[in-house]
Amino acid sequence: MEKVFGRPKSLLAVRTHYCPGCGHGIIHRLLAEVMDELGIRERTVGVAPVGCSVLIYNYIDCDMYEAAHGRAPAIATGCKRVHPELTVFTYQGDGDLAAIGTAEVVHAAARGEQITTIFVNNAVYGMTGGQMAPTTLVGQKTTTSPFGRSAKHSGYPIRMSELLATLEGAAYIARVSVHTPKHILQAKKAIKKAFETQIKGLGFSLVEVLSQCPTIWGLSSKESLDWVEKKMMPYYPLGEFKVPKEEKV
């Protein structure tokens, strides 16, 4: 019988440490499928963040660095400058990329660094137990915004994709989500496009993925899917914010 659905080759056959209902596992799979389809597993180097997905190198079957918190784009830069022929990606959470590592990602994008960033926005700090992230929504309760994030006190959540799309060096910037099968397919397309942007040497590419974190949000898996749609998407609209020049009419 023909096998129509299986594990991507670039994804290792191991159990992940993620909570049930977590978005990271879905995003890993999409990444692995894209690596398979582009046939780049053996010439790809990844950089893991510090966050819930620090152990991504236990799941994706390619050469990988583990970065310090927020510094993945700088490490990717060092690697890519030595090996321009490789495909280099970073995988980062919102604390990692939009707080402690803001400078590194902004400047990697501004330089048009030929790397791809998968940016997982779950509106909280997962790994450290649910503190407020730079992407936490106004009013959202976390362990360090116990009364709900107050804009007066803590300011407003950052829309990283929109911000990065203003930079000349950024070639492809998109925001997607993984809360329905339809959205998962769209997310995969964006991830593939981002890698293709790098392979064609067009500049920096980033895909922001709105991702459910049922554990920290205190919701069931099902409820967390709705939360992405009802709470996150109005503030973080999906779409392509920047596409490579060669695609523009």
């Binding site: 310090a68 510094r71 700088a74 690697c79 030595v82």
Partner: peptide, 17 residues
Amino acid sequence: AESEIAAIYMVFGAAGA
């Protein structure tokens, strides 16, 4: 680099490569 922090991690990346 944009800072000494970024510079030392670029070194990390290049050394690892």
